[in-house]
Design a protein around this nucleic acid. Structure first.
Lengths: 185, 185
DNA sequence: GATACTATACCGACTGGTCGGTATATCCTC
DNA sequence: GAGGATATACCGACCAGTCGGTATAGTATC
């Protein structure tokens, strides 16, 4: 009874628990029940809760990388504007896929030290993308605005509807892509 | 043996647990131990865990209101630019007081429905402050940039140091306060 | 019969919460 | 001002249930 999609379903269940009930209710029993599997079956795929958490983070990172690559391919490979790629990635990630980021909430709530590798990579990318740019401060503003919008939705304190979010992301992208405008912000 | 600061100490302990170990480790036993009180004593002040969580949120809201009022008073009461007040408030809130926002993480992780009143108020203020402005999209960008920066620190994925954060907040404030620039961003 | 997977039963630690009791300070009465 | 009543603040043992994790017996497929 090989079910290759089983891990996917488990991770889906874990995410939806985090989104719906909060990371404190992310328990092995709850995950098993939500995806109609026994606890033993769950443990077979993820031997520990830590494994489940790292699995959630890994999937988020995979998805992020996938989206980024898609954007780069679609862009052709002119001189890439990594800030613009970041912003488009976050636009893609919401609202359909923002649940993936529940992984962050889960890890931060259950085992914050698991964030370290993620943070380091995040840090490195941010540095590569922004610190080198002539207009660090203003690029940062665009970056954090996209992040802020994304987190708002993730933390379920979103105050803008889909249309407005789209509008804001589009404007962010426009600003990130036009170097002229950026300098004059 | 009246100790009026006892509730404060309990809330401090709760926050530091959330920051240090994650919201999943925010247990009544842990809080009691961290602030050197018995579990019974803790329960005396906060009869349920829900009461503790709402107490954390309430303190956050109080602090926010306090800072906002301070800013408004200091500003004189010319026509207030609420967006600028928001941004200055978040600048004040970090890095010294950002731990207060751990209340958000705790509630979102443990009992997300307790966020509803907070979200509504947040929503209302955002609407009052920004939706009416002629440049909604660009004001939103500044607002979410400040939020994004704040959440980054709260979620402990901060990628900028204090000096850079200051720099970014200052620039945000400058943009929020100069209406000319805002329109031309 | 090896591999991949599932179900069930169980364990000890920990969870939120209750409960009976203690110590101190304040107030009222005579 | 002695004696009692009341309220506040706190303690720590205890309870029923949940937690992550283990152990084991079983099933389906190759």
């Amino acid at each position: 009874m090989a079910r290759p999609s089983c891990k996917k379903q488990i991770l889906d269940a874990a995410e939806s628990i985090v989104i719906d009930s909060g990371a404190a209710h992310l328990t092995l029993d709850a995950v098993a029940e939500r995806c109609g599997i026994s606890k033993g079956g769950l443990i077979y795929h993820f031997p520990t809760k830590e494994a489940l958490l790292t699995g959630m983070i890994a999937r988020l990172e995979e998805k992020i990388e996938l989206i980024r690559e898609g954007i780069r391919r679609q862009d052709g490979d002119g001189m890439t504007n990594e800030l613009a790629v970041d912003i488009r990635m976050m636009r893609e990630l919401s609202p359909e896929d923002y649940r993936l980021s529940a992984a962050l909430l889960a890890v931060i709530a259950c085992q914050p030290d698991l964030m370290n590798p993620f943070r380091e990579q995040h840090h490195k990318r941010f540095w590569d993308d922004l610190i080198s740019s002539r207009s660090f401060t203003r690029s940062s503003i665009l970056f954090f605005a996209a992040m802020g919008l994304h987190f708002h939705q993730l933390l379920n304190i979103s105050i803008v509807d889909n249309e407005q979010r789209r509008e804001i992301f589009d404007e962010l992208l426009r600003l990130a892509e036009s170097k002229e405008n950026l300098r004059e912000v």
